[in-house]
Protein backbone atom coordinates (compact mmCIF):
# COMPACT_ATOMS: atom_id res chain seq x y z
CA UNK A 1 0.00 0.00 0.00
CA UNK A 2 1.49 3.29 -1.12
CA UNK A 3 0.04 5.24 1.81
CA UNK A 4 1.79 2.93 4.27
CA UNK A 5 5.08 3.18 2.45
CA UNK A 6 4.83 6.97 2.27
CA UNK A 7 3.76 7.33 5.90
CA UNK A 8 6.73 5.33 7.15
CA UNK A 9 9.27 7.09 4.92
CA UNK A 10 11.42 9.75 6.55
CA UNK A 11 11.28 13.17 4.92
CA UNK A 12 11.44 16.24 7.10
CA UNK A 13 11.32 19.67 5.39
CA UNK A 14 14.57 20.17 3.50
CA UNK A 15 15.37 16.46 3.27
CA UNK A 16 12.59 14.89 1.23
CA UNK A 17 14.73 12.60 -0.92
CA UNK A 18 13.44 9.25 0.35
CA UNK A 19 9.83 10.20 -0.14
CA UNK A 20 10.64 11.61 -3.57
CA UNK A 21 12.20 8.31 -4.67
CA UNK A 22 9.15 6.28 -3.64
CA UNK A 23 6.78 8.60 -5.46
CA UNK A 24 8.97 8.93 -8.53
CA UNK A 25 9.04 5.17 -8.98
CA UNK A 26 5.28 4.91 -8.48
CA UNK A 27 4.17 7.65 -10.88
CA UNK A 28 6.79 7.28 -13.61
CA UNK A 29 4.93 4.60 -15.65
CA UNK A 30 1.78 6.73 -15.72
CA UNK A 31 3.10 10.13 -16.82
CA UNK A 32 4.97 11.61 -19.76
CA UNK A 33 7.84 13.16 -17.85
CA UNK A 34 9.20 13.55 -14.35
CA UNK A 35 11.73 16.13 -13.23
CA UNK A 36 13.19 17.51 -10.02
CA UNK A 37 13.83 21.24 -9.65
CA UNK A 38 16.54 23.07 -7.72
CA UNK A 39 14.75 23.09 -4.39
CA UNK A 40 13.70 19.44 -4.69
CA UNK A 41 10.12 19.48 -5.96
CA UNK A 42 9.16 16.41 -7.98
CA UNK A 43 7.17 17.48 -11.04
CA UNK A 44 5.23 14.86 -12.99
CA UNK A 45 3.87 16.07 -16.32
CA UNK A 46 1.05 14.40 -18.19
CA UNK A 47 -0.17 15.78 -21.47
CA UNK A 48 -3.92 16.32 -21.81
CA UNK A 49 -6.20 14.78 -24.39
CA UNK A 50 -6.13 18.03 -26.36
CA UNK A 51 -9.59 19.33 -25.40
CA UNK A 52 -8.32 22.54 -23.76
CA UNK A 53 -5.02 24.28 -23.86
CA UNK A 54 -4.83 24.72 -20.11
CA UNK A 55 -2.16 23.95 -17.54
CA UNK A 56 -3.49 22.62 -14.26
CA UNK A 57 -1.17 22.20 -11.29
CA UNK A 58 -1.90 19.74 -8.51
CA UNK A 59 0.22 20.05 -5.39
CA UNK A 60 0.77 17.78 -2.41
CA UNK A 61 3.70 18.26 -0.11
CA UNK A 62 6.19 15.50 0.60
CA UNK A 63 7.76 17.05 3.67
CA UNK A 64 6.72 16.40 7.23
CA UNK A 65 7.44 18.22 10.47
CA UNK A 66 10.28 16.85 12.57
CA UNK A 67 13.40 17.74 14.48
CA UNK A 68 16.93 18.82 13.65
CA UNK A 69 20.08 18.10 15.63
CA UNK A 70 21.69 21.44 16.44
CA UNK A 71 24.43 20.46 18.88
CA UNK A 72 26.03 17.36 20.33
CA UNK A 73 27.18 17.84 23.91
CA UNK A 74 30.12 16.32 25.75
CA UNK A 75 28.03 13.48 27.14
CA UNK A 76 26.82 12.47 23.69
CA UNK A 77 23.27 13.80 24.01
CA UNK A 78 21.78 15.52 20.97
CA UNK A 79 20.27 18.98 21.39
CA UNK A 80 17.60 19.66 18.81
CA UNK A 81 15.09 22.17 17.50
CA UNK A 82 11.76 21.61 15.80
CA UNK A 83 11.43 21.82 12.02
CA UNK A 84 7.98 23.20 11.21
CA UNK A 85 5.09 23.49 13.66
CA UNK A 86 5.86 20.75 16.18
CA UNK A 87 3.56 20.68 19.20
CA UNK A 88 6.03 20.87 22.10
CA UNK A 89 3.62 19.05 24.42
CA UNK A 90 4.09 15.79 22.56
CA UNK A 91 7.90 15.59 22.56
CA UNK A 92 8.86 14.00 25.90
CA UNK A 93 9.01 10.23 26.02
CA UNK A 94 8.92 9.65 22.24
CA UNK A 95 11.05 7.33 20.10
CA UNK A 96 12.76 8.99 17.17
CA UNK A 97 14.94 8.03 14.22
CA UNK A 98 17.95 10.27 13.58
CA UNK A 99 19.81 10.94 10.33
CA UNK A 100 20.04 9.12 7.01
CA UNK A 101 20.89 5.87 8.76
CA UNK A 102 17.78 6.18 10.94
CA UNK A 103 19.64 5.75 14.22
CA UNK A 104 17.10 5.03 16.98
CA UNK A 105 16.93 7.44 19.88
CA UNK A 106 14.59 8.56 22.63
CA UNK A 107 13.58 11.94 23.93
CA UNK A 108 14.34 11.50 27.59
CA UNK A 109 13.17 13.50 30.56
CA UNK A 110 13.46 13.76 34.29
CA UNK A 111 11.40 11.08 36.04
CA UNK A 112 8.18 12.25 37.64
CA UNK A 113 9.51 11.32 41.11
CA UNK A 114 12.11 14.05 40.96
CA UNK A 115 9.92 16.83 39.61
CA UNK A 116 9.03 19.86 41.63
CA UNK A 117 5.30 20.38 41.99
CA UNK A 118 5.18 23.28 39.50
CA UNK A 119 7.23 21.36 36.91
CA UNK A 120 4.60 18.63 36.69
CA UNK A 121 2.00 20.84 35.12
CA UNK A 122 4.34 22.68 32.77
CA UNK A 123 5.29 21.73 29.22
CA UNK A 124 9.03 21.12 29.08
CA UNK A 125 10.54 23.71 26.72
CA UNK A 126 12.30 22.20 23.74
CA UNK A 127 15.63 23.73 24.82
CA UNK A 128 15.53 21.57 27.93
CA UNK A 129 15.11 18.29 26.04
CA UNK A 130 17.72 16.10 24.39
CA UNK A 131 17.74 12.99 22.24
CA UNK A 132 19.56 10.04 23.78
CA UNK A 133 20.92 7.57 21.23
CA UNK A 134 22.79 5.64 23.91
CA UNK A 135 26.19 7.10 23.00
CA UNK A 136 28.69 7.24 25.84
CA UNK A 137 30.23 10.58 24.84
CA UNK A 138 30.48 13.21 22.12
CA UNK A 139 32.95 11.39 19.92
CA UNK A 140 31.02 8.13 19.89
CA UNK A 141 27.82 10.05 19.15
CA UNK A 142 29.55 11.82 16.26
CA UNK A 143 30.30 8.48 14.65
CA UNK A 144 26.56 7.90 14.25
CA UNK A 145 25.02 11.35 13.78
CA UNK A 146 26.09 14.89 12.99
CA UNK A 147 24.87 18.41 13.55
CA UNK A 148 22.22 19.20 10.96
CA UNK A 149 20.80 15.65 10.88
CA UNK A 150 17.04 15.44 10.82
CA UNK A 151 14.97 13.26 13.13
CA UNK A 152 11.42 11.95 12.82
CA UNK A 153 9.09 10.06 15.09
CA UNK A 154 9.43 6.30 14.98
CA UNK A 155 5.84 5.24 14.29
CA UNK A 156 4.58 2.24 12.31
CA UNK A 157 1.62 2.44 9.97
CA UNK A 158 -1.23 0.31 11.23
CA UNK A 159 -4.76 -0.66 10.22
CA UNK A 160 -7.12 -0.13 13.12
CA UNK A 161 -10.19 -1.80 11.67
CA UNK A 162 -13.39 0.03 10.65
CA UNK A 163 -11.51 1.30 7.58
CA UNK A 164 -9.29 3.48 9.68
CA UNK A 165 -5.53 3.62 9.72
CA UNK A 166 -2.91 5.10 12.02
CA UNK A 167 0.48 6.50 11.09
CA UNK A 168 2.73 9.51 11.04
CA UNK A 169 2.98 12.26 8.43
CA UNK A 170 -0.49 11.82 6.89
CA UNK A 171 -0.05 15.58 6.57
CA UNK A 172 0.65 15.39 3.71
CA UNK A 173 1.59 11.91 2.58
CA UNK A 174 -2.15 11.27 2.33
CA UNK A 175 -2.24 14.05 -0.26
CA UNK A 176 0.80 12.61 -2.02
CA UNK A 177 -0.90 9.21 -2.20
CA UNK A 178 -4.05 10.83 -3.63
CA UNK A 179 -2.02 12.66 -6.24
CA UNK A 180 -0.11 9.51 -7.18
CA UNK A 181 -3.45 7.86 -8.04
CA UNK A 182 -4.80 10.89 -9.91
CA UNK A 183 -1.94 10.91 -12.41
CA UNK A 184 -3.04 7.53 -13.72
CA UNK A 185 -5.90 9.19 -15.61
CA UNK A 186 -5.67 11.43 -18.65
CA UNK A 187 -7.49 14.74 -18.43
CA UNK A 188 -8.76 17.31 -20.94
CA UNK A 189 -5.79 19.60 -20.08
CA UNK A 190 -2.07 19.34 -19.37
CA UNK A 191 -1.50 18.13 -15.84
CA UNK A 192 1.42 19.09 -13.64
CA UNK A 193 1.37 16.96 -10.52
CA UNK A 194 3.84 18.59 -8.16
CA UNK A 195 5.06 16.82 -5.05
CA UNK A 196 6.36 19.85 -3.20
CA UNK A 197 9.04 20.34 -0.56
CA UNK A 198 9.24 22.63 2.46
CA UNK A 199 5.53 23.32 2.86
CA UNK A 200 5.85 23.11 6.63
CA UNK A 201 8.48 25.84 6.80
CA UNK A 202 6.59 28.33 4.62
CA UNK A 203 5.10 26.93 1.39
CA UNK A 204 8.50 27.30 -0.26
CA UNK A 205 8.50 24.46 -2.77
CA UNK A 206 5.09 25.37 -4.14
CA UNK A 207 6.15 28.98 -4.65
CA UNK A 208 9.00 28.22 -7.03
CA UNK A 209 7.20 25.35 -8.80
CA UNK A 210 4.20 27.54 -9.54
CA UNK A 211 6.48 30.29 -10.83
CA UNK A 212 8.11 27.84 -13.24
CA UNK A 213 4.89 26.17 -14.39
CA UNK A 214 2.66 29.26 -14.58
CA UNK A 215 -0.52 27.21 -14.23
CA UNK A 216 -3.98 28.38 -15.29
CA UNK A 217 -5.49 26.71 -12.23
CA UNK A 218 -4.24 24.83 -9.19
CA UNK A 219 -5.48 22.41 -6.56
CA UNK A 220 -3.65 21.53 -3.36
CA UNK A 221 -4.41 18.16 -1.81
CA UNK A 222 -3.85 18.06 1.92
CA UNK A 223 -4.25 16.10 5.08
CA UNK A 224 -6.14 18.47 7.34
CA UNK A 225 -7.22 18.85 10.95
CA UNK A 226 -10.17 16.77 12.15
CA UNK A 227 -10.97 18.07 15.62
CA UNK A 228 -14.07 15.91 16.13
CA UNK A 229 -13.26 14.96 19.70
CA UNK A 230 -15.90 15.30 22.41
CA UNK A 231 -16.26 18.98 23.29
CA UNK A 232 -17.94 20.92 26.02
CA UNK A 233 -19.50 23.33 23.59
CA UNK A 234 -21.39 23.01 20.32
CA UNK A 235 -18.63 24.49 18.14
CA UNK A 236 -16.88 23.64 14.87
CA UNK A 237 -14.95 20.36 14.65
CA UNK A 238 -12.88 21.92 11.79
CA UNK A 239 -13.54 18.69 9.83
CA UNK A 240 -15.02 15.31 10.76
CA UNK A 241 -13.51 11.90 10.13
CA UNK A 242 -15.64 9.75 7.82
CA UNK A 243 -17.66 12.67 6.42
CA UNK A 244 -15.82 12.88 3.12
CA UNK A 245 -13.18 15.17 1.65
CA UNK A 246 -12.97 18.63 3.22
CA UNK A 247 -13.22 21.53 0.80
CA UNK A 248 -11.59 24.82 1.78
CA UNK A 249 -13.56 28.07 1.48
CA UNK A 250 -10.72 30.16 2.86
CA UNK A 251 -7.83 29.51 5.20
CA UNK A 252 -5.09 31.66 6.68
CA UNK A 253 -3.18 31.72 3.41
CA UNK A 254 -5.78 32.15 0.66
CA UNK A 255 -9.39 32.50 -0.38
CA UNK A 256 -10.40 29.61 -2.62
CA UNK A 257 -11.48 30.61 -6.12
CA UNK A 258 -15.29 30.56 -5.93
CA UNK A 259 -16.02 28.89 -9.30
CA UNK A 260 -13.61 26.07 -8.45
CA UNK A 261 -15.29 25.54 -5.08
CA UNK A 262 -18.60 25.36 -6.90
CA UNK A 263 -17.15 22.84 -9.35
CA UNK A 264 -16.07 20.63 -6.45
CA UNK A 265 -19.44 20.85 -4.72
CA UNK A 266 -21.42 20.22 -7.91
CA UNK A 267 -19.21 17.26 -8.75
CA UNK A 268 -19.62 15.72 -5.30
CA UNK A 269 -23.38 16.13 -5.47
CA UNK A 270 -23.65 14.75 -9.00
CA UNK A 271 -21.46 11.74 -8.21
CA UNK A 272 -22.93 11.06 -4.78
CA UNK A 273 -19.61 11.61 -3.03
CA UNK A 274 -19.85 12.85 0.57
CA UNK A 275 -18.06 16.17 1.23
CA UNK A 276 -17.74 18.78 3.93
CA UNK A 277 -16.46 22.33 4.22
CA UNK A 278 -13.41 22.83 6.36
CA UNK A 279 -13.72 25.46 9.09
CA UNK A 280 -12.76 28.77 7.45
CA UNK A 281 -9.51 30.55 8.37
CA UNK A 282 -7.84 27.51 9.94
CA UNK A 283 -4.41 26.36 8.70
CA UNK A 284 -2.73 27.01 5.39
CA UNK A 285 -1.68 25.05 2.33
CA UNK A 286 0.50 25.33 -0.77
CA UNK A 287 -2.41 27.15 -2.44
CA UNK A 288 -1.41 30.15 -0.34
CA UNK A 289 1.81 30.46 -2.32
CA UNK A 290 0.48 29.24 -5.65
CA UNK A 291 -2.45 31.65 -5.96
CA UNK A 292 -0.15 34.69 -5.62
CA UNK A 293 2.17 33.56 -8.40
CA UNK A 294 2.83 36.08 -11.16
CA UNK A 295 -0.54 37.54 -12.26
CA UNK A 296 -2.47 35.23 -9.91
CA UNK A 297 -3.71 31.65 -10.20
CA UNK A 298 -7.27 30.45 -9.49
CA UNK A 299 -6.71 27.90 -6.72
CA UNK A 300 -8.58 25.49 -4.47
CA UNK A 301 -7.74 23.02 -1.71
CA UNK A 302 -9.27 19.63 -0.94
CA UNK A 303 -8.19 17.63 2.09
CA UNK A 304 -8.41 14.22 3.70
CA UNK A 305 -9.48 14.80 7.33
CA UNK A 306 -6.88 13.47 9.81
CA UNK A 307 -7.06 13.43 13.57
CA UNK A 308 -3.95 14.50 15.53
CA UNK A 309 -1.88 15.95 12.70
CA UNK A 310 1.50 17.40 13.67
CA UNK A 311 1.80 14.68 16.31
CA UNK A 312 3.58 11.32 15.98
CA UNK A 313 0.46 9.36 15.11
CA UNK A 314 -2.59 10.53 13.24
CA UNK A 315 -5.70 8.63 12.21
CA UNK A 316 -7.59 8.84 8.93
CA UNK A 317 -10.50 7.05 7.32
CA UNK A 318 -9.77 5.08 4.17
CA UNK A 319 -13.27 5.99 2.95
CA UNK A 320 -12.36 9.69 3.12
CA UNK A 321 -9.08 8.94 1.41
CA UNK A 322 -10.73 7.08 -1.46
CA UNK A 323 -13.52 9.63 -1.74
CA UNK A 324 -10.91 12.36 -2.09
CA UNK A 325 -9.45 10.52 -5.07
CA UNK A 326 -12.94 10.02 -6.57
CA UNK A 327 -13.92 13.64 -6.04
CA UNK A 328 -10.74 15.08 -7.50
CA UNK A 329 -10.73 12.75 -10.48
CA UNK A 330 -14.34 13.53 -11.34
CA UNK A 331 -13.91 17.27 -10.78
CA UNK A 332 -10.81 17.45 -12.93
CA UNK A 333 -12.64 15.69 -15.74
CA UNK A 334 -15.44 18.25 -15.55
CA UNK A 335 -13.11 21.25 -15.36
CA UNK A 336 -13.69 23.69 -18.21
CA UNK A 337 -12.17 27.08 -19.06
CA UNK A 338 -15.30 28.83 -17.77
CA UNK A 339 -14.50 27.60 -14.26
CA UNK A 340 -11.47 29.89 -14.33
CA UNK A 341 -13.32 33.14 -14.97
CA UNK A 342 -13.96 35.67 -12.22
CA UNK A 343 -17.67 36.31 -11.98
Amino acid sequence: MLLKELSEAIGVSGNEEKVRKIIEEYVKPHVDKVSVDSIGNLIAFKQGDGSYSLKVMLAAHMDEIGLMVTYINEKGYLHFRPVGGVDERILPGKRVLVGDKAIPGVIGLKPIHLLREEERSQVAPVESLVIDIGASDKSSAEKMVKVGDYATFDVAFQELGARRVKGKAFDDRAGCAVLAELVKERYPFDLYAVFTVQEEVGLRGAKVAAYAIEPDAAFSIEGTVADDLPKEKDVSPTARLGHGPAITIMDRTFVAFHPLVRLLVETAEAEGIPYQFKQPLVGGTDSGAIHLTKKGVPSATVAVPCRYIHSPASILSLDDFENTIRLMEAALKRLKPEHLRVE
Binding site: D234, V235, S236, Q279, P280, L281
Partner: peptide, 17 residues
Protein backbone atom coordinates in the same frame (compact mmCIF):
# COMPACT_ATOMS: atom_id res chain seq x y z
CA UNK B 1 -16.27 38.23 10.13
CA UNK B 2 -16.57 34.72 8.69
CA UNK B 3 -19.11 32.21 9.94
CA UNK B 4 -17.26 29.02 10.87
CA UNK B 5 -20.09 27.04 12.43
CA UNK B 6 -23.86 27.05 12.76
CA UNK B 7 -24.91 25.33 15.97
CA UNK B 8 -28.00 23.19 16.49
CA UNK B 9 -30.06 26.11 17.70
CA UNK B 10 -29.12 28.33 14.77
CA UNK B 11 -26.50 30.53 16.47
CA UNK B 12 -23.38 31.33 14.47
CA UNK B 13 -19.78 31.02 15.60
CA UNK B 14 -17.32 33.14 13.67
CA UNK B 15 -13.71 34.21 13.08
CA UNK B 16 -12.21 37.60 12.33
CA UNK B 17 -11.57 38.35 8.67
Amino acid sequence: IVVNYVDEKGFLRFSAL
